[in-house]
């Protein structure tokens, strides 16, 4: 399911013509809405939930919704980016919270 943009936190990457989410999305699906100067997903059906945009957003303005097969609306999967690790929080549809810390190994 496609990423949702929190319009108050998104600053359009200072309204550059290529915000960070657009630069990183492998499917070239994120772009800047020229009127509101905020990011949005151009083709929601083509998003395959890689969550690269969520990870790179400096304002933390993006959130993906999990597909119904995995958890549906109440469920959440939220990354918190550290310098060499990512802290994942999974909240399932019953509200149970699990957390994982994964070291990124691309240094």
């Amino acid at each position: 399911m496609p990423p949702r943009v929190n319009k108050e936190k998104c600053d359009g990457c200072k309204a550059e013509h290529e915000p960070l989410c657009e630069q990183i999305c492998p499917g070239d699906l994120m772009t800047l809405n020229p009127e509101t100067r905020k990011a949005y997903c151009r083709s929601t059906r083509d998003c395959w939930d890689c969550m690269s945009c969520v990870k790179i957003c400096p304002q933390g303005a993006l959130e993906t919704k999990l597909p119904y097969q995995l958890g549906y609306y109440p469920a959440k999967l939220i990354p918190l980016m550290g310098t060499n690790k990512i802290t994942w929080t999974c909240i399932d549809i019953n509200g149970k919270v699990e957390r994982f810390v994964i070291k990124t190994r691309n240094d």
């Binding site: 933390g60 959440k76 918190l80």
Partner: peptide
């Protein structure tokens, strides 16, 4: 911004 994310993360 981070605090808002933390809240979502419970």
């Amino acid at each position: 911004n981070m605090q808002e994310t933390l809240q979502r993360m419970m």
